[in-house]
Design a protein around this nucleic acid. Structure first.
Length: 422
RNA sequence: GGAGAGAUGGCAGAGUGGUCGAAUGCGUCUGACUCGAAAUCAGAUUUACCGGCAACGGUAACGGGGGUUCGAAUCCCUCUCUCUCCGCCA
């Protein structure tokens, strides 16, 4: 959520931000709701003040005395009026709140203009794309692929996009998760094993609701949401809390399975391991002092990049343009790994600074040097998403004998230096 | 899942219809005393929103929501959570 004061004091800033994100929002309607809400609030508060003062007088009167009864009569009509006004206020307030939730975060000044993925700025590239064998094949075409990654039986059991990982397939997933968590720990992130179902308040705090409701799996009876990313339970750890300033920055990581309905996806995007309804991911998260958040974003990106470097995978870093920024993000880098068999880039990490947007919704604060609570900035990034990293490993490292040579860092985790499909 | 008890400020813990944003203790901060410290004494010590350049003023908040009443921390309903007992269970 944006600071309501910002909308009052400099609506043009908000208007420009909406334009940069290429969203269509009726700002005037929200502004007039805001004015209406404030004027109704003033009316209600005036009446309440009146009620309060008369109630004080009545406390000193004998119950049932004529003076007392006269006041009761007087207050009865005030009560009726107040109730009516309060009803109107409540209505306006919930409309106002809903409208405020529909306002996206402001993009940072360094975010490039643009509407589509063609407008992203390549911030860095690493590794040699051409070093990958020219006859590399898409991972789902590798002979024996379905022995390790059984989509057919997953579809039978659950549905499309819920594969079984079998044998070396399960083992490599476990090795990657373990590797990612160990690296995050070394980089200073405290490991957390969070709940993987969250309630609506939590999903709202991080911005999944109301914006992306249709993307989450929801339980019927208890109305809980399966987490689309560990970001949700991790960020909500400090919801409604004040973190001691000395503790900042707080850095944490978590592995969770992630669940996404991915409604509307199709074609080559969803082949094989490219896009799944359930996948494994390690998430990195930071709660930082507002003055540090952009430095911390660079550090976060660096932490994620280091993983790809150690895995010896070619990748590039994109600075996302305004039109492709998420609803809640102020600035975002995507890390994309080169998939030699598909000859395309696959997104494996997204590192974002949310500034105070999530913190305001979640009321996560610290006490500043004046002793006043102030909103923290939150950042998060994948470190990393397993299936696409795995896809790149399978494609880029496939050897002539049909096995996959694993990077040295994974060997201790996997137990062998090659992965076999049979 | 069943039965019962409970939820009050940073913590502990009073308050069962009016003058209660809330006693008291602890903690924290400031001052006094002291060479300094401890002890002691005095004072201060929530948050959010609205209005205001500000000083300041107003309103709200006793787990959440709703109700009764002229008036609710206090009475009623409901939800959530915690505890005790029973049941079930990795």
């Amino acid at each position: 959520m944006l600071d309501p004061k910002l909308l009052r004091e400099s609506p043009d800033t908000v208007r420009a931000a909406i334009a940069k994100k290429h969203l269509n929002i009726d700002l005037e309607a929200i502004q007039s709701l805001d004015e209406q809400w404030r004027s109704q609030l003033a009316q209600v508060e005036t009446l309440r003040a009146q009620q309060k003062s008369v109630n004080g007088e009545m406390a000193g009167l004998a119950k049932g005395s004529p003076e007392f009864m006269a006041k009761v009569g007087e207050m009865k009509s005030l009560k009726t009026e107040l109730k009516e006004l309060e009803g109107g206020l409540k209505e306006t307030e919930s409309a106002w709140q809903e409208a405020m939730l529909s306002l996206p975060n402001l993009p940072h000044a360094s975010v490039p203009e643009g509407k589509t993925d063609a407008d992203h700025v390549v911030a860095a590239t690493h590794g040699d794309v051409n070093a990958v064998s020219a006859d590399a094949q898409a991972h789902w075409e590798i002979p024996g692929f379905e022995n390790l990654f059984d989509f057919a039986r997953g579809a039978k059991t659950t549905g499309a996009g819920f594969p079984y990982y079998v044998g070396d397939g399960a083992r490599i997933v476990r090795a990657l998760i373990h590797f990612f968590l160990d690296e995050a720990g070394t980089a200073g992130y405290t490991e957390v094993n969070p709940p993987i179902f969250v309630n609506a308040d939590s999903a709202t705090a991080t911005g999944q609701l109301p914006d992306k409701e249709g993307q989450m799996y929801e339980t019927v009876i208890d109305q809980l949401y399966a987490v689309p990313t560990a970001e949700v339970p991790l960020t909500n750890f400090f919801r409604d809390e004040i973190i001691p300033e000395a503790d900042l920055p707080v850095r944490r990581c978590a592995y969770t399975p992630c669940f996404r309905r991915e409604a509307g996806s199709y074609g080559k995007d969803v082949r094989g391991l490219n896009r799944l309804h359930q996948f494994d991911k390690v998430e990195l998260l930071k709660w930082v002092h507002p003055s540090q958040s952009y430095d911390e974003l660079e550090a976060l990106r660096n932490d994620a990049e280091n993983l790809l470097k150690k895995l010896e995978l070619p990748y590039r870093v994109l600075l996302m343009c305004g039109g492709d920024l998420g609803f809640a993000q102020a600035k975002k880098y995507d890390l994309e790994v080169w998939s030699g068999g598909q000859e395309r880039w696959l997104e494996v990490s997204s590192c974002s600074n949310f500034e105070a947007f999530q913190a305001r919704r979640a009321r996560i604060r610290f006490r500043n040097t004046d002793g006043k609570p102030e909103l923290v900035h939150t950042l998060n990034g994948s470190g990393l998403a397993v299936p696409r990293v795995l896809a790149a490993l399978l494609e880029n490292n496939l050897q002539a004998d049909g096995t996959v040579k694993l990077p040295a860092v994974l060997v201790p985790y996997f137990g062998r230096d090659t992965l076999r499909f049979a």
